[in-house]
């Protein structure tokens, strides 16, 4: 198998089962996925890296039918509340992208899928959520 890289740096592929990590503010516990200059909630600057749960609940979703060129449609975009904390946006996969199969409150778990290759053959791996 060729080399793999995560599509974003908060997806961890090389430390046990694939999972997400967040930067947690040591001052107030706020969670962030991006590189931070400080905490937007308490202004602290001290963060720790914490793994997040791989299961959660769909708090919101949409079925996208009109997208940027090159993006396959329809697909389901959802906001998932992870068990134990953390909100994340991702596609709901491995189920038809329609409101009969994707629903509010549905239980989901993290999965991964190939997102593309570069010319050196490295595969980018994205994450999504599938029905649990």
């Amino acid at each position: 198998m060729g080399r793999q890289v995560p599509i974003v740096d908060y997806l961890v592929l090389d430390d046990g089962p694939p999972h997400l990590v967040a930067g947690r503010c040591r001052g107030c516990g706020a969670l962030y996925f991006d590189r931070r200059n400080g905490c937007a909630r308490c202004f602290g600057t001290d963060f720790e890296r914490v793994p997040l749960a791989t299961e959660g609940t769909v708090r919101s979703f949409t079925i996208v039918h009109r997208a940027a060129p090159g993006v396959p449609v329809p697909y389901a975009s959802a906001i998932v509340g992870l068990d134990g904390g953390g909100l994340v946006k991702a596609n709901v996969v491995h189920t038809p992208a329609d409101p009969e199969h994707v629903g509010l409150g549905m239980r989901v778990r993290l999965t991964t899928f190939p997102a593309g290759h570069d010319r050196e053959g490295t595969e980018a791996v994205a994450f999504g959520f599938e029905p649990a």
Binding site: S60, G105, G116, G128
Partner: peptide, 30 residues
């Protein structure tokens, strides 16, 4: 800031307006 190696639009959900506001509405519905 997310260390992305490619565009995440459509791969990690949507950030375009119709979908963002759809999800805002559906969160209210939830």
């Amino acid at each position: 800031r997310y260390g992305s190696v490619m565009s995440v639009e459509g791969r990690l959900g949507t950030t375009l307006m119709p979908g963002v506001f759809a999800q805002a509405g559906m969160e209210y519905a939830y």
